[in-house]
Amino acid sequence: MARFKKEKKSGVQKINTSSLPDIIFMLLFFFMVTTVMREVTLIVKIKPPEATEVAKLERKSLVSYIYIGVPTKVGLYGTKPRIQLNDQFAEVDNIPAFITSERQARDEADRRYITTSLKVDQDIRMGIVTDVKQELRKSGAYKINYSTRKVGKLSYGNLY
């Protein structure tokens, strides 16, 4: 006497996906706001040294980067440490011109806050870094930042 037949579920019920684009757009905007465009492709290998007393680098738009390391394509460019400015290899003599162009790219009021971030591989000898620092001093870029990886504790054993 099945007067009220149970309605049989016909297949899988459709999920309403009309709000899916909104969710994805929200994610998209989140990423657009919180991230910065990758500016350069690294052509030198860089593994920053470890440090405990690090500070965050504020205002990324006012940071210019100098990369120093061994070229990634060792077969092509050798194993000598090289400097990378923007997307190409550079010599120490190119640094003043680089600093000038970095200054001109920034707003005049912000120019004195420009920080130069030195991204240097941990196994590089100080000679080339010292040369770069001397050039920076001559060009008046006094604010520098040694890029490091933050670790909880420095292991002294790995240093020698």
Partner: peptide, 21 residues
Amino acid sequence: FFLVTTTMDVDTGISRKLPPP
């Protein structure tokens, strides 16, 4: 596209000031 082209890593480092020449 944005995930691939952008970086989210926070730059940390030791800040120092160089002396004038």
